[in-house]
Design a protein around this nucleic acid. Structure first.
Lengths: 335, 335
DNA sequence: CTGTTAGCGCATTCAT
DNA sequence: ATGAATGCGCTAACAG
């Protein structure tokens, strides 16, 4: 792994290293011909400036870090692709890490990124996350960060979020309009803002239609969790007429169990999920679900971050709320 | 972003920087009490060694780069998780990039990784990839690389692959045993070894059963491609009795079109896919498919890489072939 | 056991 | 327009 350095190029051309350096950073005075000669020779020699050394002295890396809880589902990958489109175009490289929903891994990831001098961070918090002090410190120390999707209120940073309240409201309203009066909400992880908002939307819809608030059952964002909850309902003979799940995963897990136990969907029990997974439209019956503008979320986060990096100190954090859509499919159709 | 440096700690304690450095790299002689004092003080001051500076001098980063073509499907994310399990445990951090199936992006990613002095690389090639000269150079220069899944034969590096031939053979055999005599193979991208091997397995099964070789239709790894091909078959009235696709994506795309055109599956046309996607078991009818040991692939690749990093020069590239399973589901069941 | 010194590869100030 | 010298933060050889 013998790297060709700036010295090698300088020696070969009998110029000083600073001249070579100048050739690669066109802000300095340098004669056009020498510059071109240097660039050409460097190219031939296979020389590329060492970004490690560059980072050390310049305090910037042209790298952006993205940290997500997982990427087995398509949601986060799609967001990442959106962000990457913007970032690559501006000359940034994107480094991605996943926290596996673990708070500890998450912060180790952050440390790695910071230590590697990324110029900014785009983060979606792990479910487990409680301790936001570390993020406060980081923000205080002027590290540009944009949070998305999984955010917590009291962090003075830019955020890109979805209008969870509104769309949970519409999703629930849809079920109410179909005549359902006994709807159970499978919540998301309690500490996440988005879970709270989806729950609030669920309740608000009930109030609007003057229907007694539906039951809530704690549930995480996984098929297994949804399946477990469904099984309990069946065993306890507490099967509602419809389920509004805070995630497609839990909805699909629950649906599967109900189907296996002979329930017909949507006749015996209707389903609405949240956050359009790839699966939603392919399973049978297809799952009614709220879709989020994943790509747009990524692009918006990237743009916010770039803005913050460029304006540095005098930047005011802003929260951007994006809109979605309710895709009505068979799982909740009137029969 | 004012970083606390080794100097700050040294000054505070009236010791030299090298003593502080020693405290953080326990291979040197240092009195236990001074070491502990330094570590404690450093901790209080919020000092952490700057890995950038460390990299510059040490030529190692404890970072491993993973580059995959995409991660919207669950295959690559699962492999990454497998690799990450091994790597994290050994103290490595994992940086992930995606090439979007673009050769250019892929090699830019490689450059970024190399420039950032990752200690090793785990790569799955983009479909588009043709030019392997760059990889040859990289390998010559002693960068440890392990390829997986998407590999090309003549690269002198370790590889973790699936026995595509064998499982394509079994998949095809399964269809032949069901009585199908007119099977079409939707191939994968031509330049990939795995496409070639799946195709060979397809032919070999035909030979074993003394059935004339089935038709092959070029197709890429996407639902859209599968759908397009299916439409052409219908329009040309060349609908076979069964389809063996080189990917679940193309199988699912094709299935959808056939269903929309009134074909019953598996009665009118049977389907077998390849490389278990999350979708396969959830769509209707559920798709028969060859499943790969994703997590195992990741772990194996990581272990190979670590071995290579540790033994450095005297390492002999090896190719590890992993086994899979054929999950028979409704899409190909005898009726 | 600890301090002094040099240098990783580069950008930048100050000379010329 | 170019070269020499300094230092980013750190490790490692060499002294003592």
């Amino acid at each position: 792994m013998k790297h060709i350095t700036i010295k090698d190029v300088a020696r070969k051309l009998n110029v000083s290293v600073s001249t070579v350096s100048r050739a690669f950073n066109d802000k300095y005075d340098i004669r056009t011909e020498t510059k071109e000669l240097i660039l050409k020779t460097a190219e031939e020699m296979g020389y590329r400036p060492n970004p490690i050394a560059r980072k050390l002295i310049q305090q910037r890396s042209l790298n952006i870090g993205i940290i997500v809880p997982e990427f087995v589902n398509s949601f986060f990958p799609e967001v990442i692709m959106g962000a990457q489109e913007i970032l690559l175009e501006k000359g940034y490289q994107v480094l991605i890490m996943q926290s596996n929903e673990s708070w500890e891994t998450e912060f180790n990831n952050v440390k790695t990124m910071v230590d590697n001098m990324v110029d900014g961070l785009i983060i979606s918090l792990s479910c487990e996350n409680q301790n936001i002090e570390n993020y406060k410190k980081l923000i205080d120390s002027d590290m540009p960060i944009v949070f998305f999707n999984r955010v917590v209120e009291d962090l003075p940073a830019s955020k890109v979020v979805f209008d969870d309240f509104k769309w949970a409201f519409f999703a629930t309203e849809h079920l109410l309009v179909q005549g359902h009066r006994d709807i159970v909400h499978l919540t998301g992880p309690k500490n996440l803002t988005l879970s709270k908002n989806r729950l609030k939307g669920f309740d608000a819809a009930h109030r609007k239609y003057k229907v007694p608030l539906g039951r809530k059952v704690a549930c995480s964002f996984s098929m297994e969790a949804g399946a477990k909850v469904a099984l309990e309902m069946i065993e306890n003979k507490e099967v509602p007429s419809a389920i509004f799940a805070a995630s497609d995963q839990s909805a699909i897990g629950a649906m599967k169990v109900f189907k296996e136990h002979g329930y017909e969907i949507p006749k015996d029990i209707a389903f609405v999920g949240f956050s359009e997974s790839r699966l939603a439209e392919h399973i049978v019956p297809a799952l009614t679900s709220v879709s989020q503008p994943t790509r747009d979320i990524g692009q918006t986060a990237a743009n916010l971050l770039l803005e913050q990096i460029e304006t540095k100190g005098l930047f005011v954090p802003q929260t951007i709320v994006l809109n979605g859509r309710l895709n009505v499919r068979e799982s909740s159709m009137k029969i």
